[in-house]
Design a protein around this nucleic acid. Structure first.
Lengths: 201, 201
DNA sequence: TCGATACGCAACGGTGTCGTTTCATATTAC
DNA sequence: GTAATATGAAACGACACCGTTGCGTATCGA
């Protein structure tokens, strides 16, 4: 027996599922992943314990770990900066500064690690992560570059995908293999160096 | 009771340790890592089984898994191309082509993944990997760039570490997040794009 | 030959996680 | 109140590894 509610959701008889528990589970999963565990090392028991929840409650919602992780990643809000700068240079600097500042946070680092290292073993997770975290940023970056090409700040024949790879790849390389503390003006230095080749001849 | 050998190695009484077994163990470990396992998922039992070796033989040589992995990574020969090209451009293209071709091999990919994603959890392994696989290449790349600066192919004020990050990071980004098959001339396109900003004004 | 050491193999007890089940309790619709 | 469903807690048997030990065999020096 079911009945329609005003919002169109289907209600069933009996106690409804606790949203609070669901949030706690996802938060706990992200927490553990953020501490450096890979997907395979992420145990349901550990999630349940940290979330203060019975394993039953988890298994009732997700039939396997991957589904849980996919949902967890989906809950990550991609914090995209608005990027309303005056120049392309300012926008790029602002963008890379966001990327750099995120790379400092352990949780961001670890989740990035998961995306990069476990894409072969967990393609669904990787796909979802790409859609949630990578794609919107790429589109943002792409828009900045296109704008620069349109208004003459950048070469009209700029290879946009290549330019995006140069910018993102350089920042990732430096944040990944950093020998020491990153320079505070890293974003500016990357942009200024790279733009030398992007500006009109 | 020990005695000196001609090569200075110390020989003990009794059956000597089998070099063949040692090679098999390390090879098996690399094999499993190359199939996508992380260091934590790498089990001694699995290594022993694949190497056709008793667990005893492994525990007799390494007291823990990290030591084994460190030795295994150390055994990887970094295949550095000679890079005797005529121009800086040719050398850079040749270098990046090696990087790209390696990125196709599953084993290389996975070991790279380990280095990138488990550096926080296994710092000794990461350090060793950096020394074995990253550092020699960085020095090679650095030498190419310095040569270009000396002979006028590149700007005299080029930021070498930044330039290296741009080249390596771009290739990594494209090989990592590739949507489809990589273009065959990827290395040339990266170098040609990047060199626009590296050449003298 | 003999002592010493390494070998592969099998088994040990211990631990952690799996996915499931049972239970008493809580929350909802009817 | 009653039926239905969800909850957290606990326990289940199963499995994979752990690190260790014992065993019979193989290979070395003396």
């Amino acid at each position: 027996m079911t009945m329609q509610q005003t919002d169109g959701a289907v209600r069933t008889a009996g106690r409804p599922r606790s949203e609070k528990a669901e949030k706690a589970i996802i938060e706990a999963a992200l927490d553990i992943l953020g501490e450096g565990s890979g997907v395979s090392e992420l145990s349901i028991e550990a999630i349940a314990a940290r979330a203060g929840v019975g394993k039953t409650t988890i298994y009732r919602r997700w039939s396997n770990k991957e589904d849980l992780v996919v949902d967890a990643l989906a809950s990550l809000k991609p914090p995209i900066a608005p990027l309303k700068g005056v120049s392309v240079r300012d926008d790029l600097v602002a963008y890379l500064q966001v990327v750099q500042s995120e790379s400092v946070h352990v949780r961001t680092r670890c989740i990035m690690n998961i995306a990069m290292s476990q894409s072969d073993k967990h393609p669904r997770v990787a796909e979802r992560f790409h859609e949630i975290a990578i794609k919107p940023r790429q589109e943002l970056l792409s828009a900045v570059l296109e704008r620069g090409m349109a208004n003459g700040e950048l070469r009209a024949d700029l290879d946009v995908p290549m330019a995006m790879a140069i910018l993102s790849g350089t920042m990732m390389w430096r944040t990944k293999w950093a020998d020491g503390p990153l320079p505070a003006d890293l974003a500016e230095r990357i942009v200024d160096e790279v733009l030398l080749g992007f500006r009109p001849r």
